[in-house]
Design a protein around this nucleic acid. Structure first.
Length: 896
RNA sequence: GGGCGGCUAGCUCAGCUGGUUAGAGCACUUGCUUGACAUGCAAGAGGUCACUGGUUCGAGUCCAGUGUCGCCCACCA
């Protein structure tokens, strides 16, 4: 007596209640922490995680990052690799200050009013309060990070690494201090890097201004002038020359003469330089070396003086006479107005120009001449480039290697200093004689390295490092570098670096450069870049647009695994994706499907549970063949970092093979009246065993759900989980070559499934009631087919809803219209309708076959094909032709 | 100005080193309250793979060019 009560089934999946409990179990088991010693013979798998900014909340980009990395980590952990995924947080210098400045502004304070020390205290307070939120959110995502190794780019380990790294650069002559033009944000009041200076095309004005020529006595000639075009008249106070193209005949006579600067009367040489565009504006350009990158370069070529006319707030300074103290834009208005009054404003034209704005605050960036710390990157970049070119570091997708190369070839020295407070202070000390001492000691140098003056007489540089300097050391600083720690030896270099393509240059390139220089080895073997998650319209998500999707809300809604499926499926590396409702629903539906399949299997446990008896059925041999193929495929895809492919493989096996066919066939066998308790036990045990392997395979994709089901499965049938306690720590299914009987089962079952489909199709077109049982007659194509039909009969009957079965019908009884499959010809029903419909289908099928046969015949009789194509391909085509011909023959004689 | 991508079913996208009849999900049509799941089941329709030319026995896939959309980099003030 077999009973299955519905009340035994696990309840509907409830993410909110299931997932935290599961995560806590993993934590309790210390499942994320590598064993104290690397298992003997184990391969290493270490992921370099991009540490999220300490100030932020996770967005979908972080979620995707976490999912990709977590999937790889879970897979490798199950493989038994020595696996580490180390969590961290970035102090995000400029971004953090931006946020804190706003907060203290509400409290009526400013950076200046607090002072450096109190400001930093306040920052630590703020950071300590927000630091955990990122971690909590990662837990909700299911990220199996080794929390015991949590790091922060402002912790003592990072600080030490930063000092040592900089000292080594200095000692190697790769760090220097010098005057140069840098990008300055007047609002953040700091230098920013080229990458943080975001170019925008904006509408502006091009003013044409007359610079009168100087007469021999130095006075301004009211009747002779050279007209220059500029978009920034307010910077004219810093002009030190006027430039024209050397081959420009209009100005040839003027080269060597001087012009007179309006307002100030300074005399400006007129120089020739081939960087001047003759066609643009008037062909003459005013040269303002301290406020324009082009002019700066030109001035260096011509030995021109450089005069700064703006202060750090971008107000005009004392060099500007009566205009001193004006904001740059007010000054612009006034300068233009005054020039107009003087009659020296020749033209005013609308003009599209490219303006750089601060990535953080959007303020127009000002080129500013100042003394700065730089890292000479050319030699570092060459090495990084060689690593990629020579394949020691691989970038996925591959075309980013070209993008990387292009950037590395045109890289400029890196201005590493920031005039901020929140960050690592540059470990350079100055003595009264301006000697520079760089020290990696925590408490600074004992004395000036040049003149030996005592530490008391030295003052430390007040600038701090660009945030990316410390994150550039991340892969090894987090493992203890510069100490030769056990972790460093064991987990460095890392295997995979995964991040959004947006920060390839910001971060990946810098880790490559610094890693190679400091550790002499590529910090990671593979760089995996993912794309941006966009809204359904394809727009980038941003707070200002209000189209941001909060991953945590999504998880509340559909569960963390469903979100993971949605984000990871059907998305190639490096390609942006639009996150649509339909995609999210798809993820939700898939997790629901798996959960319900498990509910069925667990609820179908026969009672009483007997010892299994009997040989494996066709369905059982078939699903094992499918499972073997799936293991092989999924493993290969994960090894190749093809996560979308892996997801599709799991989806297909779980849904199409396991649920749609295998479980349906298992139901047939479980519910057969003539099945013994032993046979039922066997059938059920096969379903649990395959489920067990499916859960293992799906674990990286559905960590929470697979673990939850695994726990129930272990209770219901410990043999299915082979006694392994937590799925996260269980072993990855081993690939095996399917037995011969299983290979045969795959072929045979495919034939049975074709027949079931063909019969179902005919039922549909003939309009027979869905529930009606119709008789089925099959004329087997041969003895082998007869045997297959016998084995598949029970599935055929139940799944195609045909009864009684006549599986050895005589050819002579065939009606005029039949269907055909590789097993033979068939017809259903006794009435004309089905036969009629069958006829229509048969004719269509026949036409299809004819076309294919014709095409193949042409192909295999093509001498060029036979001569040049590989023998295996020719053989395959011939075999296929043979099969199609016999099928055509089977229908041909009746329908034709 | 330089560089890099995309263009494949109505929509969103997969298609690895060229080799069966180009796939998936969603949407669509038809039929199903099937003892896991209607967040589901079954069957079906839907594509000159942007265009032109080339290489090849064979091209969505390789090459050249064109169009178009997008991204990155850049020193026409």
């Amino acid at each position: 007596m077999t009973t299955t009560s519905r009340s035994q089934l696990p309840p509907r999946y409830d993410a909110a209640s299931v997932e935290p409990g599961i995560y806590d179990r993993w934590l309790a088991a210390e499942a994320f922490t590598p064993a104290p010693e690397a298992p003997a013979g184990a391969e290493r798998f270490v992921i370099t995680q991009p540490p999220p900014n300490v100030t932020g909340a996770l967005h979908l980009g972080h979620a995707l990052t976490a999912y990709v990395e977590d999937m790889l980590v879970r897979y490798h952990r199950m493989r038994g690799d020595d696996t580490l995924w180390l969590p961290g947080v970035d102090h995000a210098g400029i971004a953090a200050q931006f946020v804190l400045d706003r907060i203290i502004a509400e409290e009526g304070e400013t950076r200046a009013s607090l002072g450096r020390e109190r400001y930093l205290e306040r920052m630590w307070q703020f950071i300590n309060a927000t630091r955990d939120t990122i971690g909590q959110q990662h837990r909700r995502l299911g990220a199996s990070l080794d929390w015991s190794r949590l790091r922060f780019t402002m912790d003592e380990g990072s600080a030490r690494a930063v000092r040592v790294a900089f000292k080594r650069l200095w000692d190697a002559g790769l760090a220097y201090r010098g005057e140069a033009l840098v990008n300055w944000c007047p609002r953040c009041r700091t230098t920013i890097s080229d990458l943080e200076n975001i170019k925008h095309e904006e509408a502006g004005t091009l003013w044409t201004i007359r610079y009168h020529l100087a007469r021999p006595d130095g006075s301004s000639d009211p009747d002779a002038w050279i007209s220059v075009a500029t978009t920034r008249p307010e910077t004219l106070f810093g002009d030190t020359a006027v430039a024209v193209h050397p081959a420009d005949e209009r100005y040839a006579k003027l080269v060597g003469r001087e012009a007179v600067l309006p307002f100030l009367g300074r005399r400006l040489p007129i120089v020739a330089d081939d960087h001047v565009e003759r066609e643009f504006g008037t062909g003459a350009v005013k040269i303002t070396p301290a406020h324009d990158f082009d002019d700066y370069e030109l001035a260096k070529r011509h030995g021109l003086p450089m005069i700064s006319v703006l202060d750090e707030d971008a107000r005009l300074n004392e060099q500007t006479g009566e205009f001193a103290g004006l904001d740059r834009y007010d000054a612009r208005t006034q300068v233009v107005e005054r020039l107009r009054e003087m009659g020296d404003l020749e033209r005013e034209d609308p003009h599209q120009l490219v303006i750089g704005r601060c990535d953080r605050c959007g303020t127009v960036v000002e080129p500013r001449l100042s003394v700065q710390w730089f890292v000479r990157v050319k030699p570092l970049a060459d090495r990084a480039l060689a690593s990629v070119r020579e394949g020691r570091t691989r970038i996925i997708p591959g075309h980013y290697e070209k993008v990387f190369a292009h950037w590395m070839e045109n890289i400029h020295d890196w201005a590493v200093g920031r005039q901020l407070w929140w960050g690592h202070r540059i470990p350079a000390w100055y003595c009264p004689d301006e000697h520079i001492t760089v020290s990696d000691a925590g408490d600074g140098p004992d004395a000036c390295a040049d003149c030996g003056r005592s530490a008391a007489e030295l003052t430390q540089e007040t600038d701090i490092f660009d945030t990316w300097f410390s994150s550039g050391l991340w892969p090894f600083s987090t493992l203890g570098w510069p100490e030769e720690t056990p972790d460093l030896r064991r987990f460095y270099p890392t295997q995979v670096m995964e991040t959004a393509y947006e920060i390839l240059f910001f971060w990946v390139a810098r880790m490559m450069m610094l890693g190679l220089f400091l550790t002499d080895v590529e910090p990671f073997q593979t760089v995996y870049l993912h794309g941006i998650v966009r809204d359904p319209m394809g727009s980038k998500m941003s707070k200002t647009k209000g189209n941001v999707v909060d991953p945590l809300e999504m998880i509340e809604d559909i569960g963390a695994d469903a979100l993971r499926v949605a984000l990871v499926s059907g998305n190639a590396p490096g390609v942006d994706q639009r996150l649509t409702d339909s995609k999210l629903t798809g993820g939700r539906n898939f997790t629901n499907k798996i959960w319900n399949a498990a509910r069925f299997v667990l609820g179908a446990r026969p009672d009483p549970m007997a010892e299994p008896t009997g040989d494996d059925s066709l369905a059982e041999r078939w699903i094992r063949a499918r499972l073997a193929a799936t293991i092989e495929r999924a493993t290969r895809q994960l090894d190749a970092l093809d996560l979308a492919g892996y997801s599709a493989t799991i989806h297909e096996f779980a849904w199409s093979d396991y649920c749609d066919w295998y479980l349906e066939m298992a139901k047939v066998e479980l519910r057969r009246d003539d099945a013994s308790d032993g046979e039922r036990a066997r059938v059920w045990r096969r379903t649990t065993r395959v489920l067990g392997d499916l859960l293992r395979l799906a674990h990286p994709l559905l960590p929470f759900m697979s673990e939850a089901i695994w726990q129930s499965l272990a209770e219901a049938d410990p043999r299915a989980t082979r006694g392994e306690g937590l799925l996260i720590c269980a072993t990855w299914p081993e690939g095996v070559n399917p037995a011969e009987s299983e290979v045969a089962a795959e072929r045979d079952m495919s034939a049975i499934r074709d027949l079931i489909r063909a019969v179902r199709d005919q039922r549909t077109v003939s309009g027979s009631p869905a529930g009606a049982w119709l008789p089925l007659h099959v004329v087997p194509a041969g003895d082998a087919e007869r045997r297959v039909l016998g084995e598949g009969a029970r599935y055929l009957e139940a799944l195609a809803r045909v009864r009684p079965l006549d599986l050895d019908a005589a050819a002579m009884d065939r009606p005029a219209s039949v269907g055909t499959t590789s097993l033979g010809t068939f017809w259903i029903g006794a009435d004309g309708a089905a036969a009629q419909a069958a006829g229509a289908r048969a004719t269509a099928r026949q036409a299809e076959l004819r076309e294919q046969v014709d095409r193949l015949r042409a192909l295999v009789s093509n001498e060029a094909f036979i001569a040049r194509a590989p023998a295996a391909v020719v053989e395959r085509e011939r075999a296929r032709l043979g099969e199609l011909e016999s099928q055509l023959a089977a229908v041909g004689e009746d329908a034709g």
